[in-house]
Design a protein around this nucleic acid. Structure first.
Length: 559
DNA sequence: ATTCAGCGCGCC
DNA sequence: AGGGCGCGCTGAAT
């Protein structure tokens, strides 16, 4: 293992680090768990050097996690701003979940060529690692996360970080040629001059102007506030230019306007410019940010990896002789809710592959659409429309599940924190939030203050309501992905890109890029890992987590 | 000239 | 007015 702190003069260049890690990566019975400050900082160079790491412990991600659990600030020693340029720490730990005290507790094991560095005073990050180990092992008491669950979450989070770097490294196969053809078909040829409208878009703009009896070039289609004013001048009663609001209007200009907005969106978000910026050598390399969202979901950083419109997915094409194995967890969030709440009736409704259809068959609601709307409303805190109308029926049939989300909402409204299955903890509402709640509850509060505070409390309640479900779904997805990743990799299979590998992740969906003859293995791996994830989170709960799997050449051909 | 909030919409 | 995001654009603020 290798240590260099800010005083050390020995610098491990990426090749030396890669060699040191590669030498120990295939140890039996289990490969080491490398401990380092930041997977995103160190792993790309290793992959570039051809070294694939099986397991790691990401100090920054776990610190972020534990800080949330214990309501303390994150460790400043792990702030990105102070990231040393030299290797901070890479300690192999043999214990699977990082909570077992190793025989040799000192995490300093000099590797060849790094003895000088290793024998120095331990770097601060070694202390961070030791503190984290103790933190993970701490019994927090009833109702609080257990060492087992937090260790599992730390491992899943870290595995996700590895997968994220690997997916960026390998990339999603993307045909720029087909993307361009798609754009040309929908928008017209790419304009020669920057900023000019493609001809199909211009034709729609002209049509809108014509139908509004406006002069050419006078309707500002790309500026929402001005567009609203223009529409109002034309006698249309609109308060915004949102599509769903425009859809309600009966006016000949609306149809081309909506088509314009749709295509304009395609052009600006995923048009030629995006293609040039984000697709190289037949690959789109998603930039994921593990732990980037409070709920534990991943975020993305440039490229919009988590917002790929369905419209452009036909450009995602497997290499010749290869396929995309596209897997999707079926109705993940309601299933998560059923398992979290131990709702036996909902578990029965989910016995088949389609939980929403199961709800219909239970007699709770009349249609699959109602079941879906109602469940989404229950998990998001919807209070109006169709979803609110269906809710009472769901409540009668699935009282335990509905009570679970209601409890989470009430806790949030009181300013309490809530937790996911593995212990990720929601943030505390701001000081100001608490302050306004207190003021509103006092005698001198105005009616307006009370109403505002009530609304704010409800809003936070909707957040905590959703947090438990979305956050636990994220945990399931991480566990799933980690299991798939572990099953796919073979040390004898050559470089990552030459064997079946994860290529894309989207909250409850995975794409594996694989040689066609391996598609069967991959499907088995995906299904086995999904079953494992359910057991890891919920033990012997009757709730299943079926996935749909499609073996396709184009992403758009899945489901 | 640059930064920022709000809008609108893409994904789950 | 239902939760979580990212991103490009606009127009106002700096």
């Amino acid at each position: 293992m290798l240590v260099a702190d800010e005083h050390a003069t020995t610098e491990l260049d990426p090749p030396a680090l890669a060699a040191a890690i590669a030498a120990r990566e295939h140890e039996a019975p289990e490969p080491p768990r490398w401990v380092w400050s930041d997977t995103a900082r160190w792993y790309p160079d290793l992959l570039a050097a051809g070294v694939r790491v099986e397991r790691c412990h990401d100090l920054r991600l776990v610190d972020q996690l534990l800080a949330g659990v214990d309501g303390r600030p994150t460790d400043p020693r792990l702030a990105r701003a102070v990231e040393p340029t030299r290797l901070p720490l890479a300690a192999p730990q043999a214990d699977a979940l990082f909570e077992v005290e190793p025989a040799d507790a000192t995490p300093v094991v000099p590797a060849d060529g790094a003895r000088d560095a290793g024998q120095r005073e331990p770097a601060p990050l070694v202390d961070v690692a030791a503190a984290q180990r103790a933190d993970l092992a701490r019994e927090r008491g009833p109702g609080l996360p257990t060492p087992r669950d937090l260790a599992l979450l730390a491992a899943a989070e870290s595995a996700g970080a590895l997968a994220a770097v690997e997916m960026h490294h390998v990339g999603l196969p993307w045909s720029a040629e087909h993307h361009d053809a798609l754009l040309t078909e929908l928008l017209g040829p790419r304009p020669a001059s920057l900023g000019a409208r493609p001809e199909r878009l211009q034709a729609l703009a002209t049509e809108v102007e014509h139908r509004l009896d406006a002069a050419s070039g006078t309707v500002p289609l790309d500026s929402p506030p001005e567009l609203v004013r223009a529409l109002r001048r034309a006698g249309l009663d609109v308060s915004s230019s949102r599509s769903w609001e425009l859809k309600r209007l009966d006016h000949p200009a609306i149809e081309p306007l909506l088509r314009y907005k749709k295509l304009s969106r395609l052009l600006t978000a995923n048009g030629w410019h995006w293609l040039e910026q984000n697709v190289r050598d037949g690959r789109f390399r998603p930039s994921y940010v593990p732990g980037g969202v409070v709920t534990g979901r991943w975020g993305s950083d440039g490229g919009g990896a988590l917002q790929l419109p369905k419209l452009v997915r036909s450009a995602v094409r497997a290499d010749p002789g290869w396929v995309l194995v596209v897997a999707d967890a079926a109705q993940l969030e309601p299933r998560i809710l059923a398992a979290l709440s131990n709702d036996a009736a909902m578990a029965r409704a989910g016995a088949g592959v389609d939980l929403y259809q199961g709800i219909v068959d239970s007699g709770a609601v009349a249609s699959r659409e109602h079941a879906k709307l109602g469940m989404l409303g229950a998990m998001y805190g919807g209070t109006t429309g169709q979803s609110a109308r269906v809710l009472p029926r769901l409540q009668r049939v699935f009282p335990q599940a509905i009570r679970f989300v209601e409890d989470a909402a009430r806790a949030g409204e009181r300013g309490e924190r809530v937790r996911t299955r593995l212990g990720r903890t929601s943030p505390q509402p701001s000081e100001e939030w608490h302050e306004r709640q207190l003021v509103a509850a006092s005698d001198g509060a105005s009616e307006a203050q009370r109403a505002a505070a009530r609304s704010e409390a409800r809003s936070w309640g909707r957040f905590t309501r959703n947090f438990v479900v979305q956050g636990t779904a994220a945990e399931w997805a991480l566990s799933w992905m980690a299991g798939v990743r572990r099953r796919l990799w073979s040390p004898s299979g050559g470089p990552l890109a030459s064997q079946p590998h994860l290529a894309y992740f989207l909250h409850d969906e995975l794409i594996v890029h694989a040689p066609r003859e391996r598609a069967g293995d991959v499907e088995l791996a995906l299904r086995a890992a999904a079953a494992d994830a359910g057991r890891l989170l919920f033990g012997d709960s009757p709730v299943g987590f079926p996935i749909t799997v499609a073996v396709v050449e184009r992403y758009s051909d899945a489901k």
